[in-house]
Design a protein around this nucleic acid. Structure first.
Length: 473
RNA sequence: GCCUCCAUAGCUCAGUUGGUUAGAGCGGCGGACUGUUAAUCCGUAGGUCCAAGGUUCAAGUCCUUGUGGAGGCGCCA
């Protein structure tokens, strides 16, 4: 791979490389990239040995295989280069039709050609970082004795209330079978009942945690919400650990440790990509007015996360901070906080994270009315042991809670929130047989990738984004 | 779903209070050069001004609707 050759350890050896040409300068110099690193290796050819026809075939995007001696570069821009003695053109790239030029393209344009955008420096860097983060997550959990659990993609439960679901069916949509009272007759469907794509693996993960003690899921999740924002996808990847014999504090510690570990991992393994992304972000922010630019450069920001404890406070304390804030007193918020019980809008979260504490914030103990049924009730009877981690520029990156382990309280909560208990006996069995304190959270993978890469649209950190009106590729 | 902004060459953009033949850079094509670094230099082609309708003597420019994109809000991860 080019990454290895660029270290220069094999100078003097005859080497073979395969890759795609980025540029061809002076009829002599091919910048070749194979995706192993953001850097290109320079191939030097003697144009006298090739006819014009062959030279014309070397264009941006052309697939090339080359053999030659790895030597110290005679030019200034690179340490090593390959003096080519055998060049094979594997696949042509018609320059009149190939959309990628050696120039800056807009992210919006590249999104329209998502099948080719991996070949750019920016997206190469993003997806190498994404890969590292993904691996780091598995390594983190594996090193700590967690069992990686595959929860179902197709589910019949609509219990979590995490959002609108995509229906899964093999019924003929042009001739849907109906029951006598005019409802869709799912008895005739593939699973003989209504099914959906999962919105969360949490409930199943809880089942696993009550046997393996520590489990995590890492898989795709689907939400059919009509969300048109730079932070939401209809198909995204989520990490959901679930730990038994653990409370909300253990849960927070685990989440903070995981986030720091994965960020540290990319700093150790993807520095060149991060440096490139940092420069990209710097260039992008030059277009913005001074007060909208980030205070820290990308890598500094990532190190800052590692070096500082996340600020932990309760919802009630957060409300007090917000009520005391100038913004609230001067009614600068669009939604002025009137008192306890208000749902926090993203402007409030952003104030806490970006203006007040200036670091990641973990908010805990939310009012029970604005949270899900399975969260453990506090002694006050008003709040639940929920925790959200808020990141600068991203907002909510983690949402979790200690789960209600007491069957009677859980049943009461389900009743209050109209969750059909009779369909969830399998879930309630965890509380009937050997119930124990447990907790878990969901980490939105793409939001983590967004944060680490410094990108601003979540559609740019997943290879083929799905969002309302768009399922191309 | 709601609010705001945008749509001109393959890409990135300019185009004045509505006025004659719509421009530039990059990219393409032809050529020169040959240790270049998004190479450079000379030449050249390239447009349904998003679509439909309207106002006007006259529309890239104004109005209406639609489509696509961006940002913000809500829902959340």
């Amino acid at each position: 791979m080019i990454k290895e050759l660029l270290t220069g350890n094999r100078i003097g050896e005859t080497v073979k490389v395969n890759g795609w040409a980025r540029t061809f300068r002076n009829n002599q110099f091919i910048a070749l990239n194979d995706g192993s690193t953001i850097n290109n290796i320079q191939l030097v050819i003697d144009f006298n040995e090739y006819d014009d026809k062959t030279l014309k075939r070397i264009n941006p995007g052309t697939a090339i295989s080359a053999t030659g001696e790895l030597v110290e570069s005679l030019g200034k821009g690179q340490k090593v280069e390959i003096k080519v003695n055998k060049l094979v053109i594997l696949g042509d790239s018609d320059p009149e039709k190939y959309p990628l030029q050696p120039k800056k393209h807009s992210l919006e344009f590249l999104r329209e050609i998502a099948h080719l955008r991996f070949r750019t420096n920016t997206f190469g860097a993003i997806f190498r970082v994404r890969n590292s983060l993904s691996f780091a997550i598995h390594k983190f959990f594996n090193d700590r004795g967690f069992v990686y659990m595959h929860t179902p993609i197709i589910t019949a439960s609509d219990a979590e209330g995490a959002g609108e679901m995509f229906k899964v069916t093999t019924l003929n949509l042009n001739d849907v079978p109906k029951t006598e009272d005019g409802q869709v007759d799912y008895k005739q469907d593939f699973f003989e009942k209504a099914t959906n794509l999962t919105v969360s693996g949490q409930l199943e993960a809880e089942l696993g945690a009550m046997a393996f003690s520590k489990v995590y899921t890492f898989g795709p999740t689907f939400r059919a919400e009509n969300s048109n924002t730079s932070r939401h996808l209809a198909e995204f990847w989520m990490i959901e650990p679930e730990i038994a014999f653990a409370d909300i504090v253990d849960d927070m510690n685990l989440a903070e440790e995981l986030l720091k570990y994965t960020i540290k991992y990319t700093l150790e393994h993807n520095m060149e990509d991060l440096e490139f992304l940092e420069q990209r972000l710097l260039q992008e922010e030059k277009q913005k007015p001074q007060n909208q630019r980030s205070e820290m450069a990308l890598i500094e920001k990532l190190n800052f996360i590692l070096d500082n404890d996340f600020e932990r406070l309760t919802y009630t304390e957060a409300i007090e901070v917000l009520m005391r804030s100038k913004q609230n007193k001067k009614k600068k918020f669009k939604y002025v906080i009137e008192g306890w019980g208000a749902d926090l809008q993203s402007e409030h979260e952003r104030y806490l994270v970006e203006k007040h504490f200036k670091k990641p914030v973990i908010l805990t103990d939310y009012p029970k009315d604005i949270k899900a049924f399975y969260m453990k009730m506090n002694e006050d009877g008003k709040t639940v042991r929920a925790m959200d981690i808020l990141f600068p520029g991203i907002g909510e990156i983690v949402g979790g809670s200690q789960r209600e382990e007491k069957l009677d309280i859980l049943l009461d909560r389900m009743n209050e929130m109209d969750v059909p208990a009779d369909e969830m006996q399998w879930y309630l069995d965890t509380r009937r047989f050997g119930s124990a304190e447990h907790a878990g959270f969901g980490l939105g993978f793409e939001r983590l990738v967004l944060f680490v890469t410094g990108m601003s649209n979540i559609r740019d950190v997943i290879p083929f984004p799905r969002y309302p009106g768009s399922a191309k590729f």
